[in-house]
Design a protein around this nucleic acid. Sequence first.
RNA 1: GGCGCUGUAGCUCAAUUGGUUAGAGUCCCGGACUGUCGAUCCGGAGGUUGCGGGUUCGAGUCCCGUCAGCGUCGCCA
Length: 601
Amino acid sequence: MLRTHTCGELTIENVGDTATLCGWVDTIRDFGGVTFIDLRDRYGRTQVVFNPDSTPEVLAEMGKLKNEYVIKVVGQVRPRPDGQSNKKLATGEIEFVVNDLEILNECKTPPFVPGQKDVPGEDLRLKHRYLDLRREKMLQTLQLRSRIIKTMRDYCAENNFIDIETPILGRSTPEGARDYLVPSRVFKGKFYALPQSPQIYKQIMMIAGYDRYIQVARCFRDEDLRADRQPEFTQLDLEMSFVDSDDVIGMIDGMMQRLAKELLGLDLQLPLQRLTYDEAMTRFGHDAPDLRFGMEIVDITDLASTCGFGVFKSTAEAGKFVRGVNAKGAAPKYSRKRIDELTNMVKDDFGAKGLAWFRCEEDGSLFSPIAKFFSEEELADLKTRFEAEPGDLLLLIADTWDISCKGLYSIRKRMGVELELYDPKEMHFSWIVEFPMFERGDETERWTAMHHPFTAPRDQDLDQLDSDAGKTRAKAYDLVINGYEAGGGTIRIHDSEIQQKVFGLLGLDEESAQERFGFLLDALKYGAPPHGGIALGIDRVVMLFAGLDNIRDCIAFPKTQKAYDMMTEAPNVVELLQLEDLGIEISKAEKSDSSESVSDN
RNA sequence: GGCGCUGUAGCUCAAUUGGUUAGAGUCCCGGACUGUCGAUCCGGAGGUUGCGGGUUCGAGUCCCGUCAGCGUCGCCA
């Protein structure tokens, strides 16, 4: 080892010790005589002191030092003079007097320094990720990530889970997200697919009798990105045999309690709150609501059907919905202009036709451009239903169930932040359960699976599969933290007949089901135990535990919105020879050569 | 694929209604200083305002296109 201690290690206990430290030059404070250098590594910072009476050789080397040089110093630990300790540093009570200095490596003038106050632009950070990762915040987040994963693994190990790796090169099952494909050299014209999740493998493991499985699994989905979505991400994949929904939920309850305690010092009360899907949609318009604040949706469709406002009335009569939320105390803060912004949001993003609003005045009356269409009694009724008080702003959408859900959900989410309706540091864990088995695909009569096609229906809904599939509820459960879907799971179908029936409802005839999932259907016939599991989005859990609003900051080497790696410049062109090996010819390349288009500008 | 925001010195940002020589802090270079920890002080260097076109007497500012980053809708079983 080149060093005897790390830069976060030396304390008053070490005074008088001789030690050797290695690290990066964080800051240089040169007073002409004495010079201080903060030496930084993963573990912390130590103030290193160069005295004027050092040897000329040491002083000469010291003169060469610049930001981010990598150095080794030999010296003694001594207490700092009275009144000069630095409480911000763990090593702040001591300083390190240098006897010898060796420059292990120089550093070009960096585009940004890790210690600088202003965070550089994200493109620059991603391009020079090795510098960005030196920043305190990144270091803390990645350390938190490591501890979260360790805690998850420890918990699972204590509960008899076995950690098993499943293939990265698998087969495409083109339900769901787009696959990342890998061409085969041996089978020309055939492709592997990178796993969207190890779903089928873990079910096979259950059938094989490995009754508790986990894996920290990398998953890949070739879909457009978001602040909380990356093309490759990590999930804690878990599966259990001889269980029902409550057992899996209970297992994760315990894991969350442990994580919250160990990493945040929070005591979670178990069981975690549960909400059915229908209740979540009715009250919050979304299947992953942020339950840290109220502002619940109020349905006034019945009132609308008898009122004098044509838009409301006709919407109600058409079997659609008139629903709204009460933004408590928002009226003084939301000018017409800001209400217009909200209106444009629900119009542009979700195709709502408009946003109606009522303002509750000081005298308790409701003011609105459309108030004249309502009788005194109806206005009073509105007030009562929304529990409107002076200063409140009521926002209503008259539209389909889907649009009213989406519109009111996004209004609630946005205003929750803008009105500071909750403490952003608060953590709220809950389960959404009893999802529908199926939803209607766009413009088709066909059903699509809400989770995936292996999801088991509730026992009491089995008969409905034939009669009223749309009403069938699944043994499905999502873990929701602060309004984010942190994980989702289901109990699987272990009966090949029911599986065939579900495939049928999804429009997969026996032949094509056999073609795609034949191996699973076969396996189900060889003694499949009842089983189910869950997948937790580790990147998202880290994001939420770290209080961040973007998943890229939780991943060491993330990709941009276009799924581009700015540091390695992947994806990129490959040698013609490689393509020939694979029997691949490019018919449609990007306009410009990637070599010149991506590297600069 | 749609909508929106952003792009000015190495970095973070400013620049009035379109107005004459595009500023500040930091970083960098040189100098001073023996107790700082966002060191301080003095001096200096550093710009084709992402790129291409247009409008105008005049464009960082307005318009069109394009590239990049971000946000969002679609999409994400």
